Amino acid sequence: MGDSEQKALNFMAEGEKKCHSSKGILSSMFGKESATLDSACECFEKAANNFKIAKNWTAAGKAFVKSAEIHGSMGNKHESANKYYEGANCFKKSDHQDAVKCLLKAIDIYTDLGRFTIAAKYHANLAEIYENELKDINKAIQHYEQAADYFRGEESNSAANKYSLIVAGLEAERDNYNKAIKIYEQVAMNSMDNSLLKYSVKDHFYKAALCHLCIDPLNGEQALERYEQLYPAFSDSRECKFLKALLQNLTDQNSEGFTETVKNYDSISRLDQWTTSLLLKLKRTISDEGDLR
C-alpha cells in the first residue's frame, strides 16, 4: 500500500470517529455537533484526494459521497451537490453506474435550488455516460433533451441547440427520421435571424434533407424546394447541389452515379461518420452493394 492510500485510510478513520463523536450528548449540549461534522467532512475530502493520488477511484468516490451525505444532513445543499459531482468524476473512472447515481443526486439538489444551468450541464454529462459508456441510447436522448430544455429555459440558446442537434443525430441513426427532421428544421428556423448562428442554417437544412431522402426521394425533393424558398443562400451551397445530384441518382436508380457523386463531394468536403452512415442506407435502396467507394 502506498503512502497516499494509507493517508487516505487514516483520514477516513478520523472522519468516522468525528461522525461518531458528533452524536454524543455533550457535543449536542454545547452546540459542537455542526463544527464536528464540518471537520468530519474535511477529513473525508482529504481522504478522497489522497485516494485520487493513489488512483483508487472507487474509494475516492465513496469518500466524496460520505462528505456529500453529511453536508446534506446539515442543510449545506451547495456543498452536498458539489461533493456528489466530485464523486461522480471519480466513479467515471471505475463504475459508471455509481457515477450516474451521484450525478442524479446533484441534479436533484440543483434543480430544487433553481440552478437550472448547472443541472443542465450535469444532464449533459449523464447523457454522455449513457451514450458512450453504458450504450443506453434511450436514456442518453432523455438526458440530452432535458439539458436542452433547461438551457433554453435559461436563455442559453446556443447550448440548447447543441444538445438538441445531438438528439437529432442519434434519432436519425435509429431511423427516427421525422423526429430528427423536426429538430433540424426548428434549429434552422431559430438561427436564421441570428447574426452569429445564421451561417449554420445550411448545415441544418442539409442534414434535414438527408433524413427526408432516407424516408423517400419525393420527400427529399419537396424538402429541398421548401428550404431554398426559406433560405435562398442554401441554393448556391455545395450541400444543396450535392443533395440534388443524389436525388437525381436515386430517381434514376443509378448506383454508379450515386457512388461517383459521393466520391466527388468527399474529395473536397470530407464526409463524417454520421453522413456516411445515412448515405450507405440510401445507396442500399438502389443497390445491394454496401460500399460507397
Rank of each mutant, 00 (worst) to 15 (best):
G2D: 08
L9V: 04
E14H: 06
K18M: 05
S21I: 06
S21Y: 13
G24D: 08
I25Q: 07
S27N: 08
S27I: 03
S28I: 10
F30P: 03
F30C: 08
G31P: 02
K32Q: 15
D38V: 07
S39R: 11
S39E: 11
K46N: 13
N50R: 04
F51E: 05
K52A: 07
K55G: 06
N56H: 14
W57Y: 15
T58Q: 15
T58H: 15
A59K: 05
A59F: 00
F64S: 03
V65C: 06
K66D: 10
K66Q: 13
G75R: 07
N76K: 15
H78Q: 14
A81Q: 08
A81L: 04
N82F: 13
E86D: 09
G87N: 01
G87V: 00
N89Y: 03
K93G: 00
A99C: 06
A99N: 06
K101H: 07
K101M: 10
K101W: 05
K105V: 01
D108N: 12
Y110E: 08
T111V: 12
T111D: 10
L113I: 11
L113M: 15
G114T: 10
R115I: 06
A119S: 14
A120G: 04
H123C: 15
A127K: 09
E128H: 12
I129G: 02
L134V: 03
K135M: 13
D136M: 05
Y144Q: 01
A147I: 07
E154M: 09
K162V: 02
I166Q: 10
V167T: 10
A172R: 04
A172K: 03
D175R: 04
N176G: 07
V187Y: 02
A188N: 04
M189E: 11
D193T: 13
N194T: 12
L197Y: 15
L197H: 13
V201S: 03
V201F: 13
K202C: 08
H204L: 14
Y206Q: 03
A208K: 02
A208I: 08
A208S: 14
Q222K: 14
A223L: 11
L224W: 00
R226N: 08
E228M: 12
L230A: 08
R238M: 15
E239K: 06
N254H: 09
S255P: 02
T259W: 00
T261A: 03
T261I: 05
S267A: 14
S269Y: 11
Q273R: 12
T275K: 09
R284E: 12
D291A: 05
D291M: 04
